[in-house]
């Protein structure tokens, strides 16, 4: 059991969740309520990582974040280190690839809020920010929790994109799934088996949680 990889995986999943949720809430709320031209295009773009082979996304990120590219050089001077083969790099990649998992459930939750409930809040004197804090977020909460669980579980198992942009640097980019792969490659099958079982348990728990939240949400809307 590679404890360093285990800790790194949890760290990546935690920071992905923390950073992706505000982005996803803003994006999902925008997609749920605004009508604008090109909305389908934006939605398709958000959903793209769902069908795109992770290695393809990893390839583009590798090229884009490489210090030899303009974007990569700019980011490297900004952060003091390049985004390739670093924890920051796999974190950015993880956020991008997890966007559909975060945006979808939150968008559905916002769409389920009746427009006149927001209007009732406005007429009751609540500013848009107060309305979001006291009405929208509490009502969308099951969707946000679902997104959290899905993103967490999905990040635990992320492999292709991390291998492409991060490689397998212990303590920096070698997460559990890569440690499992390395273990199998080096004939440390017992190690790989333990780590696989841990990932399986975590993923299963996350999916159970998503289902429980979904049921609570549909119960709440049945009335």
């Amino acid at each position: 059991m590679d404890w360093t990889a285990f800790a790194l995986t949890l760290k990546l999943a935690f920071w992905t969740c923390v950073l992706i949720l505000p982005i996803a809430v803003v994006l999902a709320r925008w997609l749920a309520w605004r009508r604008f031209t090109g909305k389908s295009f934006v939605e398709a773009l958000v959903m793209l990582p769902l069908v795109l082979p992770p290695t393809v996304l990893g390839f583009y990120l590798l090229v884009g974040f490489s210090p030899e590219s303009r974007l990569g050089a700019f980011v490297a001077t900004l952060l003091g280190e390049p985004l390739v083969f670093t924890f920051a790099g796999i974190l950015v990649a993880s956020i991008i690839i997890n966007l559909p998992f975060a945006v979808q459930p939150i968008q559905r939750a916002f769409e389920a809020i009746a427009p006149n409930v927001r209007e009732a809040a406005f007429v009751s004197g609540l500013s848009p920010i107060e309305t979001m804090r006291r009405v929208e977020i509490p009502l969308a909460w099951p969707g946000i929790a679902s997104a959290f669980a899905l993103v967490f579980a999905h990040t635990l198992g992320e492999f292709g994109v991390i291998l492409m942009i991060g490689g397998s640097i212990p303590g920096e980019t070698r997460v559990m799934s890569i440690a499992i792969y390395d273990g199998v490659q080096a004939f440390r099958t017992a190690d790989a088996a333990v780590m696989s079982a841990v990932l399986l348990a975590f993923s299963f728990a996350a999916i159970v949680m998503v289902h429980m939240l979904a049921r609570r949400r549909s119960d709440a809307h049945a009335h």
Binding site: N116, V117, E119, A120, A121, V123, L139
Partner: peptide
């Protein structure tokens, strides 16, 4: 504006 509006379907805060 300080108006009181009763919506047709009431639009109460369900939570």
């Amino acid at each position: 504006r300080a108006t009181g509006l009763v919506f047709q379907d009431y639009a109460l805060f369900p939570h």
